[in-house]
């Protein structure tokens, strides 16, 4: 039984991990905790839905189209909105992303109404596969695999490509990056785009499990954000770990202690961990210079 629970936790953790990864990526680049992440992902998922249902496009085309849309949305958020902020302090940027989130929520609700839709994907929700003695649905398996694949891709991007180097350099020291000829504005915009794409994948993975409606990403966003904080925003590996830990603990708690209060377990852990390690489990604590 416990194996099954852990498996469920890993599935949930996969989605939280993608959201956490997306948030951490933009946070490292621009000190902005992008609260709009969830709604951006939700909106991109709707785009996929529209392509599938209304235009009858094949799944992979819709998938790709949705990701493209997500990328552009990320660029838009950064270039058109965040860049224009006159006074980019923490609170203001936070509110801007919250505002964008609310805006997208309203827009999606207006356009598509709050009925729940079904996103058809080519993986079955009911057929199961046996894996290491545990039973897992095709969909859940696909979720875990896709998530891991994406995380590995991001890792490869950052570690081995020129773009990844530029992103890391810009994150660590924007001025130094500029004087080396790195087009920092473009790089940060691209980072937002990539982060939005990651979020969109999370959304598309989630939609078949829950349903597609404007509210679908709110809880994953919070949990993903919480996971990022748990793992320490500064460390990408850390946030992924945090997400899986969160998923598993939540799943175990839900079964052994109480399903009703499952959701707040996430925040309880975080508050406790943050009390002992204010930068998260794996975050590096940069001493503030006054």
């Amino acid at each position: 039984m416990i194996g099954q629970l852990i498996m469920t936790g890993i599935v949930a953790g996969s989605i939280y991990a993608l959201v956490a990864l997306a948030m951490s990526l933009t946070y490292k680049s621009s000190e902005v905790a992008n609260f709009a992440q969830g709604e951006m992902a939700m909106f991109s998922t709707y785009v996929a839905f529209v392509m599938l249902a209304t235009y009858q496009l094949p799944f992979w085309v819709a998938f790709g189209g949705s990701l493209l849309f997500a990328f552009l949305l990320g660029l838009f958020l950064h270039l058109a909105i965040i860049r224009r902020a006159k006074d980019p302090n923490v609170l203001n940027l936070l509110i801007i992303t919250l505002g964008f989130q609310v805006f997208l929520y309203g827009l999606a609700g207006w356009k598509w109404g709050s009925e729940q839709r079904v996103l058809k994907i080519p993986v079955s929700q009911t057929e199961t596969v046996e894996f290491a003695g545990l039973i897992i649905s095709q969909l859940n398996l696909a979720t875990i695999l896709v998530a891991i694949l994406l995380m590995i891709s991001v890792y490869i991007l950052l570690r081995f490509t020129k773009l990844g180097l530029a992103i890391k350099a810009t994150q660590q020291n924007e001025t130094a990056a500029k004087i080396n000829g790195i087009p920092t504005r473009r790089i940060v915009a691209i980072t937002f785009g990539i982060s939005s794409v990651i979020g969109a994948v999370a959304g598309i993975l989630m939609a078949p499990i829950t349903t597609l409606d404007p509210n679908m990403m709110i809880e994953p966003l919070l949990k993903g954000f919480a996971a990022a904080v748990l793992g320490g925003f500064n460390s990408l590996a850390g946030v992924v770990c945090g997400a899986f830990i969160l998923g598993i603990v939540e799943s175990l708690f839900g079964f052994y202690i109480s399903t009703e209060f499952k959701s707040i377990v996430a925040f309880l852990i975080i508050v406790i961990v943050l009390y002992f390690k204010p930068s998260g489990l794996f975050g590096t604590h940069y001493t503030r210079k006054v």
């Binding site: 020129k162 530029a166 890391k168 350099a169 130094a176 004087i179 000829g181 790195i182």
Partner: peptide, 26 residues
């Protein structure tokens, strides 16, 4: 024009080699 800023401003979390590669970005 190359610029070596006051206080070095190296990329702290990148290796020496990566720092140099960043310098050769263009």
């Amino acid at each position: 024009i190359g610029y070596v800023p006051e206080g070095r401003e190296v990329f702290q979390e990148l290796s020496v080699l990566e720092n140099l590669m960043a310098g050769g970005y263009m």
